[in-house]
Computed example of a mutant assay.
Amino acid sequence: MEEFFMKIYLRSMNRSIEVSKEEHDNYYRDINAYRRTQQNHGRCTCPKADYRYCDMDCWTCKYHRAGDTVSLDCPKTNEEGDEESMLDKMVDEAADTAAIAADQLLLEALIKRMDELAPGIFHAFELRQDGLSDTEIAQELDIPRTTLLSRMKKVTTILTEEFF
């Protein structure tokens, strides 16, 4: 049985090599799928005669085009008929990061102060957040319910005065 050979072009070596049909198909499978995607978006204008030269390095290819890729500041019309750009929708990450860091520092300070005022009380607030009743929290902490409530009220009052 005669084996059928095909050629693969290697642009980096500027030459073609002979391979089996199976190796050829495996080599070009992903390349062809990628090229078709780029063509569908208008980013590749490679003629069919030159498909064999495609190696998915579009940025250095002479057939590369901008296609449907637009700038972030390119205006588009939204549902209400107003013009806006993607740049307008982007969140200022620096401001968000600073706010998150500030919130984190505040939370750490609050928890530290809570622990100074009444050791273990933060856990009681966590349990309340989880939906446990005051009676269940008091049982878990092994203290009377009225003691729990007075400690929580004391901590809340002091923290409100000091931090807010």
Rank of each mutant, 00 (worst) to 15 (best):
D25S: 12
E18P: 08
T60I: 14
D103M: 15
C46K: 06
I111R: 12
D103K: 15
D30W: 07
E136P: 01
N32Q: 10
L10I: 14
H64K: 14
G42F: 01
H123S: 04
E80H: 08
S20W: 07
D25G: 13
V155D: 00
A66H: 08
D82Y: 08
A118D: 02
Q129Y: 09
M90S: 07
D142E: 15
M1S: 12
E126H: 01
G81S: 07
T69H: 13
L127V: 00
Y27M: 05
L127K: 00
R145E: 02
Y63Q: 06
L105R: 15
L117E: 02
M13Q: 15
G131M: 03
K153H: 06
K112M: 11
C54M: 04
C74Y: 12
D57W: 09
M152V: 00
E18N: 15
R65G: 11
E18W: 08
E108C: 05
K21G: 11
G67Y: 03
V19D: 05
C74I: 05
K153G: 03
D57R: 15
G67R: 02
P119W: 01
T60K: 11
D130C: 08
D68V: 11
M13V: 15
T146D: 05
D92G: 10
A124T: 00
Y28P: 04
L132A: 03
D68W: 11
L110D: 00
D103R: 15
E80P: 05
T97L: 15
D50K: 10
D73V: 01
Y9N: 11
T77C: 10
T45P: 01
I121L: 00
F5N: 11
Q104G: 10
N32L: 10
L159P: 02
L72C: 09
L87P: 03
T60M: 10
T97F: 14
L149N: 02
T146P: 01
V19T: 07
T37R: 07
S71F: 11
E136Y: 04
F5T: 11
